[in-house]
């Protein structure tokens, strides 16, 4: 199986307090931010690796995993880390963050999919910066491919995938014919969530994503990294989503101490007006 995994770097969510808005409120200040791969995209890469192996030989790939990102040259470390983790090939589409929106990325990905002809496009269910949760869905629509979002379980089944989606009160099981677009949720990296047709039924992974082995990091430079121009993939690069203004969230107001339940109820009723 050939899998294409689009991924995005995001400001390190553990250092979220460092995110600042420029003085004019026009954009988020990105200089000096620590970057990490979007966690859901890391899960998508892990899923792609699991779907192209039997679980016991992580260096042997049955198929191909191609990772792609849109961004400046500094993003290449994000791709290299995925190559070290096991992906075969990387593509960077030259772009700045403020030149992109979900609609443009999805259209460019459509063109890339036509060139690469993967059997499956796997994405994180959303990026944890903008939380727009739309690229996978738009891409599936543009391609006219079956789609399953927020997958918590994937099992390869002939020319299709069985996909479990966790919803309130249970799991919806879908069968999507390949080629397809699937977005993944966090439980996809549980020990028994992903089975390729090679994986033994009783095989269990370690919880979470795999770590890039140090020898593979040293050799990741030898794996191919192509650089494309955004204009090669999308002729119309006008943004459909405009961000007129950013504001940091207001600081939390100090709490109030109450002396008894009666006062608490009174305040909830008359001040907070939630009762």
């Amino acid at each position: 199986m050939k899998v294409l995994v689009p991924l995005k770097r995001v400001a390190d969510p553990d250092n979220a307090n460092k995110v600042k808005v420029t003085a004019d409120g026009k954009k988020v200040e990105t200089t000096g931010l620590e970057w990490k791969p979007n966690p859901f995209d890391e899960y998508a890469v892990e899923t792609a690796l699991r779907l192209t192996e039997d679980g016991t030989k992580p260096k042997t790939r049955a198929g191909e995993v191609v990772v792609v990102t849109f961004g400046p040259k500094e993003c290449e470390i994000t791709l290299r880390a995925m190559l070290a983790t096991g992906a075969d090939r990387a593509i960077r589409v030259e772009a700045e963050d403020d030149q992109l929106d979900g609609w443009l990325v999805a259209r460019a990905l459509k063109k890339l999919v036509e060139q690469e002809k993967p059997d499956l496009v796997l994405l994180g269910k959303q990026a944890v910066d903008g939380d727009t949760n739309q690229v996978g869905q738009i891409l599936a629509e543009l391609l006219g491919w079956p789609m399953a979002t927020s997958a918590a379980m994937i099992k390869e089944d002939g020319e299709a995938l069985l996909v479990g989606r966790e919803v309130d009160g249970g799991v919806i099981n879908l069968k999507v014919r390949l080629p397809a677009v699937v977005t993944v949720d966090l439980r996809i990296v549980a020990p028994a969530s992903v089975y390729s047709k090679l994986t033994k039924a009783d095989f269990k992974y370690n919880e979470g994503v795999r770590f890039a082995p140090l020898p593979a990091i040293m050799q990741a430079k030898k794996k191919p990294m192509a650089v494309l121009k955004l204009a090669d993939l999308a002729t119309d690069t006008a943004l459909r989503i405009q961000y007129p203004r950013f504001e940091p969230p207001k600081g939390r107001a100090a709490g109030k101490k109450v002396k008894d339940v009666a006062e608490l109820v009174d305040k909830l009723k008359n001040e907070a007006k939630v009762l």
Binding site: E76, A81, A84, L214, I217, M218
Partner: peptide, 14 residues
């Protein structure tokens, strides 16, 4: 270097 950062980050995750 990028290699050094990746080694550190991989060991940190582990």
């Amino acid at each position: 270097t990028d290699d050094e950062k990746m080694v550190r980050d991989s060991v940190r995750s582990f």
